[in-house]
């Protein structure tokens, strides 16, 4: 808005009034600047939460697992096409996450034979704290750090834990904000695993 100086500070000379054309250009410039500012803010106001991704193609992601049998392996969404994917974003300092940790692990063990992949994304943790958490809950499905917090941002997560259910075609079919229970997990996965039914 400093640019307004230009128009504002010129005291028009009494002898030679401002030509109308120049004034119009000034008006347009000022309005355009204000419009840009308002436009940016309007965009900023739009809700950008994970819920808005429902029914959309899941954003691509890639993690390098740090735990158990998968340690060191890379997992990318593109490679998991054709599988139902449960993407869980968590952190070791999150109390709610600890409440669902064993539910997720048991579900993984039950659904692994049916081709479901559980992927854990460790948000804002140090590796030591993350590994300790994985060990404490004996979590065996692949978990890896969210490098650059990119997955958290791409999935527009609003906090931890958040769990995304992605169908075989890579579409997000359910977003769970907060911890999930076994019954709901079963229901969602059974729907996604039933051929021909895509809406859980």
């Amino acid at each position: 808005m400093v640019e307004m100086t230009e128009e504002g500070a010129i005291p028009p000379s009494p002898a030679r009034p401002h030509p109308a054309g120049r004034r119009l250009i000034g008006l347009i410039v000022v309005l355009a600047l204000l419009g840009t500012l308002l436009g940016v803010l309007a965009w900023g106001l739009q809700p950008r939460t994970s819920a808005t991704l429902l029914g959309q193609p899941a954003p691509p992601f890639e993690i390098t697992a740090i735990n158990g049998e998968f340690a060191g392996q890379r997992f990318a969404l593109a490679d998991l096409r054709g599988h139902v994917v449960v993407l869980n974003i968590w952190a070791s300092w999150c109390i709610e996450c600890a409440r669902e940790a064993s539910v997720l692990e048991q579900a993984w063990r039950a659904y692994r034979p049916r081709g479901v992949w559980f992927i854990g994304v460790d948000y804002l943790d140090t590796d030591t704290a993350g590994l300790a958490y994985l060990k404490r809950f004996d979590i065996t499905y692949p978990n890896g750090p969210d490098i650059g917090s990119r997955i958290y941002q791409a999935y527009r997560a609003t906090g931890v834990p958040e769990t995304f259910f992605i169908d075989r075609d890579g579409i997000i079919r359910h977003v769970q904000i907060g911890p999930i229970g076994r019954a709901q997990l079963d229901m969602l996965l059974e729907r996604l695993l039933t051929p021909g039914v895509s809406q859980p």
Partner: peptide, 18 residues
């Protein structure tokens, strides 16, 4: 507020001679 102020100001520039 922004737009109304700017329009009013431009419409009255003549009465604000130095």
């Amino acid at each position: 507020t922004f737009v109304a102020s700017v329009l009013l100001l431009f419409a009255r520039l003549d009465s604000l001679r130095s």
